[in-house]
């Protein structure tokens, strides 16, 4: 499980942990039934206060992404796809918001952005197809 802590952009550390675990779950890199590292272990590897990790785990538990099993530890829940889809959409929404904010500052209209998205999509799919035929 790869988590990176960054103390240079002001986001509280527990939130960084929560977001990154959510992302890992949404991206399928953590799936239902996987065990999360113990609080102490994660705290020592990330060099972060154990209470911060504990708080992150509590938030995740609250959101239903992980569950505590009585003696064993903390595990990713067997969540159905709707929740995972909701999470995915949430993460994407954040990214889109950022994009829109930047485009507004650069005086680029919504239509142009939509057009740009279409262009990029065809470029990327073409490149992928080409890669596939090369193999």
């Amino acid at each position: 499980m790869q988590i990176r802590i960054n103390t240079h952009d002001g986001v509280p550390i527990y939130l960084q942990v929560v977001n990154q675990i959510k992302y890992l779950v949404a991206a399928g890199r953590l799936s239902g039934g996987d065990e999360l590292p113990a609080i102490r272990t994660l705290a020592e590897t990330l060099i972060v206060n154990p209470n911060t990790i504990a708080r992150a785990y509590r938030e995740l538990e609250h959101a239903g992404i992980v569950e505590k099993r009585r003696t064993a530890g903390t595990f990713v829940t067997d969540q159905g796809s709707p929740l995972a889809r909701k999470e995915r959409m949430k993460i994407l929404t954040e990214r889109v918001d950022q994009l829109l904010a930047e485009s507004e500052q650069m005086n680029v209209g919504l239509e142009e952005i939509v057009k740009l998205l279409g262009q990029r999509h065809s470029v990327i799919t073409k490149a992928k197809r080409k890669e596939g035929s090369d193999d």
Partner: peptide, 29 residues
């Protein structure tokens, strides 16, 4: 790491001064 290990044992306390604030941000409650 040793600060973290120290307080991971319940009931222990660490009091430390620093001017490296990203460190403080990481480990201080």
């Amino acid at each position: 790491g040793s600060i973290i290990r120290t307080i991971a044992d319940d009931g222990r306390t660490v009091f430390f001064s620093s001017h490296l604030l990203d460190e403080v941000e990481r480990v201080a409650d």
